[in-house]
Design a binder for these strands. Structure first.
Lengths: 148, 148
DNA sequence: TTTAAATAATACATTACGGTATCATTTAAT
DNA sequence: ATTAAATGATACCGTAATGTATTATTTAAA
């Protein structure tokens, strides 16, 4: 019951890039901030820049920047872009196919939970993530503080 | 966002065994029902029978049976017995450590979802799973029908 | 006591994921 | 043109999860 490392990384990367919408972030900077293994990060950034969430700019002084407004990037978007495909199943526990011929009684109950998860993920966007300070206090300061 | 294969199998196995509390199920029968790869199933059954959820009886006409009442086996019990450890994390997305120094604003929001998942899993037991028919109609007939 | 039918233990094989290494390409500044 | 600093492509490696194979052990029945 968890996201994959790769999805985790994607969420962290995009959350970090949300700090400054217009900024061009280099892999180097993101690495220093988030401590994601550098080469893996590079690979992930390349993959992510093939989605419509971020774009890469090559060459000297290149980097990555968000390609949509913060309000238009939901957490679900990020999860999908990262390659986690496990949110759209329809069996009770998220199984690819229900273990049983007839949908079991728990199916509906669990489906409700899954629906709620999807709801939270699809309605929470980077703007919201950024606009509220730590512990839910609105507009305090940036939630994503430097680690380094 | 999913359970591991192993956890999935455990849930299926126990759900199936809930059909008849007293019955001794052979690995062969479970295999025919659930189509879990036979040798992997065998291994898993051995592991599960070291938990307090099911017990094995060796020798000819041996097999596996539940060792607790249906009401006393929650889905969370099964998940834990199967080895999935990913339910007790405390960061916003279930990360082992929060990506950021200060807990982010989403932390609380997501924590609520996680709490609910845990709630559903820990309060739903095999008896409940069995007592309600397909699609939520109580006491229709068994939800777990033969595939074979 | 031998046999048959079941589980137990253990080792091995395969696959997917996370991570690393190398070289190629792009682009701005000189 | 050359160089420097960035990303892109690709191949490889390590480990854990999944799956398979083999042999040992247990137990009831004949």
């Amino acid at each position: 019951m968890n996201f994959s490392k790769t999805t985790e990384y994607a969420l962290k990367i995009l959350s970090y890039m949300a700090l400054d919408y217009n900024k061009l972030y280099s892999a180097e900077e993101i690495f220093k901030e988030l401590k994601i293994p550098y080469r893996y990060l590079r690979k992930q950034l390349t993959i992510l820049s093939k989605s419509d969430l971020i774009k890469s700019i090559q060459g000297k002084f290149g980097g990555y920047k968000l390609s949509k407004k913060l309000e238009d990037i939901s957490l679900l978007d990020i999860i999908v872009a990262s390659g986690d495909k496990q949110l759209s199943n329809n069996c009770f526990f998220g199984f690819n196919e229900c273990a049983f011929q007839e949908k079991c009684s728990f199916h509906n109950k669990w489906e409700k939970v899954r629906t709620e998860i999807n709801m939270v993920l699809s309605t929470t966007n980077l703007a919201e993530l950024k606009s509220n300070g730590p512990h839910g206090h609105a507009n305090s300061n940036l939630l994503l503080t430097k680690i380094n």
